[in-house]
Design a protein around this nucleic acid. Structure first.
Length: 321
RNA sequence: GGCUGGAUGGCAGAGUGGUCAUGUAGCGGACUGCAACUCCGCGUACGCCGGUUCGAUUCCGACUCCAGCCU
């Protein structure tokens, strides 16, 4: 009985595609509550570089799941799914419609497809595995994975450090191969796909041309620099308890400014690298959105490019409510 | 004007008489608890004109341009 499920909306798109503006416009016309789907905006004190809405905007249109974590403490996709589910439930309980907005495609993907029951990140195990990799190289650990979980190993390149590490972490924590645990999801364990509980429609904002997107990214990064991005990162840099390996400090822009503050490059090179990193981020986001596993059901090309386009996509979204 | 050195893919930068640099940017792709992450794939580039040679980006000569030195 699909019609009994509560309605939910989602807007996804690459960085600098105008998601926030669209969400704010929608909120003025419909009883929606915004949930941020952004792995960088969750961190407190990372405002300019993550293009977080300013305080006045947030006061008028609250965003859930931003500023919920200190940059020293990693957030995770699994936590997001739990948090987002909780916020969605609270919003629907209040008689309003959840509007998920963001560009972190893994978060969207896990929320939509559901998530198997797996052990949480284990810092000790990860440190252990990282040390082993530094000693013997990732292909060695890949070979080890092939012995305990050949199915997963077959899907991973011997140099895919992060995913080899995760697969071995899961095996060492549970004694079970990751591939078997993922299959168990089919038996109803873990978090169910969103469609089980919500009638959700997602719209993807796709830029009309790569050139235009690149122009916007460059212009926006320069604007961030003018707005004090370097000072923002310097404050984080000077805290003393953060380091460039943290997920927060690896975010596009932050990593490059951090390197500049550490004396690795001058301001001109830093800006060029920051812009390039943002372009690469946008490219990966578009790969998710275009691919067979795209979380989006509908695409709105150029929706953000002109006021007319924005009106059009807005009308489309309002019709779904 | 003379001498010397150099000219390699968008950029940086090795190298060779005949199927290979590499890095970076760019493009395509992958992705189940770090994802703004991590990883994979993709480039007939050898300044120009002639010569030698079976074969020249590589050797020889002229030319153009650049850098340094000299007058």
């Amino acid at each position: 009985m699909p019609s009994r499920r509560p309605r939910a909306l989602a807007i996804a798109g690459p960085t600098a595609s105008g998601k926030t503006a669209l969400a704010l416009a929608l909120r003025e016309r419909a009883p929606v509550e915004i949930i941020s789907v952004d792995s960088a905006q969750v961190y407190v004190g990372m405002d300019i570089g993550t293009a977080k809405p300013d305080a006045a905007t947030l006061a008028r249109a609250p965003h859930r799941l931003i500023d919920i974590r200190d940059p020293a403490v990693p957030y995770s996709a699994a936590e997001f799914v739990v948090d987002a589910r909780r916020e969605m439930a609270a919003i629907t309980a209040a008689g309003r419609i959840p509007l998920l907005v963001g560009g972190t495609m893994l978060y969207f993907h896990l929320l939509i497809e559901g998530m198997a029951e797996l052990p949480a990140a284990n810092p000790e195990l990860r440190a252990e595995l990282a040390a082993a990799a530094a000693r013997h190289g990732w292909p060695h650990l890949h070979a080890e994975l092939a012995r305990v979980d050949p199915e997963t190993a077959a899907q991973l390149h011997p140099l895919h450090s992060q995913r080899i590490q995760r697969a071995l972490e899961v095996f060492r924590a549970t004694g079970q191969p990751l591939s078997r645990l993922l299959r168990a999801q089919q038996d109803g364990q873990g978090v169910a796909p969103i469609a089980t509980d919500y009638d959700m429609t997602m719209v993807a904002l796709l830029p009309p041309s790569r050139d235009l997107l690149h122009q916007r990214i460059a212009a926006r990064f320069e604007t961030m620099l003018d707005a004090g991005l370097v000072a923002e990162v310097r404050a984080l840099y000077e805290r003393g308890d953060l380091n460039p390996d943290l997920p927060s400090m690896r975010a596009a822009g932050y990593r490059q400014v951090w390197a500049h503050l550490a004396g690795e490059c001058d301001a001109t090179v830093m800006a060029a690298r920051g812009i390039a990193a943002t372009r690469q981020l946008a490219k990966r986001q578009l790969t998710w959105l275009r691919g067979p596993r795209s979380p989006a059901r509908e695409a709105a090309t150029g929706a953000w490019d002109t006021p007319d386009d924005q009106r059009e996509i807005l009308a489309k979204l309002l019709k779904l409510i």
